[in-house]
Design a protein around this nucleic acid. Structure first.
Lengths: 158, 158
DNA sequence: GGTGAAAGGTCATTAAG
DNA sequence: CTTAATGACCTTTCACC
């Protein structure tokens, strides 16, 4: 069910140098090429590795303001229609339903603080949203990362 | 500064089928191979594309509970030492400083609700954290995505 | 292990800003 | 005049059987 230490080393290696081929990986890990290929296939098949998509930085596109918006949803109607409309806003990067009566949380980006106001206006205009309160990310102390978790998951006894 | 429509199409294509080679991309986009290569290099050089790291799904590793923790930080000492210690916890996936007096926000994952308690205990044990309040993600209505943003950024006049 | 197929680099030519 | 795209050629390297 879980992954072992070789899987973790493989993921760590690919994370550091993603353009590496299977052959190179086998050399660096000191295992046979077939082993690496089998491990990779297994990880992808299990869904542990979703893929190798390009990692886009919104800040480099000019969207250097990040905010988290907590929304209160009208009880009647449910969350899904709201989420659907939020998904139509490109600046909305993710949406979660969270604990609390009819609350949702979403991550948004904008080109500036003034632009953030425009995005928030788009959000509060969505049918079903009663109230929205926003916090702005002033600094990203730890950028999104999963590697430590992968390593932790590969340890036999946590 | 911004990206153009060809860049957006390239990113979209690579996102859909990340294992595509440069040659295949050039065929599908109807441009020369050198063009694709140049565009890719430029996108990476500019930082728009950070890389092609493996996209790991924490849920597939058994960490299927996601939470957002808002922390109140002791004013004396600052945020950085706290962030450093939080970074030492594998279950902490990202950390932000947010608006509000001495507040930080982090995303955490855990193996279960009970396990989440253990993670939160690790967090509140960090020196400098006064209080922590957690919300649990009940459902991810819109998983993290940047593609719509990329397309929007490639449009000439928004 | 061998083989067909890419990647990655360079270059001259052409087009467009 | 600068920047970008194109098609061609080449060598190394990898993926697949």
């Amino acid at each position: 069910m879980a992954i072992d230490e070789l899987d973790a080393r493989l993921i760590t290696l690919l994370d550091a140098e993603p353009r590496l081929g299977v052959l190179e990986c086998s050399r660096r890990l000191g295992v046979a090429r077939g082993t690496v290929q089998a491990r990779l296939d297994r990880l992808v098949a299990r869904g542990v590795v979703r893929g190798f998509g390009p990692d886009v930085d919104p800040a480099a596109l000019g969207y250097d303001v990040t905010g988290f918006v907590t929304m209160q949803i009208k009880q009647v109607g449910g969350h899904d229609p709201v989420a659907e409309r939020l998904a139509g806003i490109p600046e909305v990067l993710e949406v979660h339903t969270i604990t609390g009566s009819g609350d949702m949380l979403c991550r948004v980006v904008a080109r500036s603080n003034a632009d953030l106001q425009r995005v928030i206006d788009l959000i509060v205009a969505v049918e079903g949203i009663v109230r929205a309160s926003t916090v702005i990310s002033l600094a990203t102390q730890v950028p999104y990362r999963v590697l430590p978790l992968v390593v932790a998951a590969s340890q036999p006894n946590p």
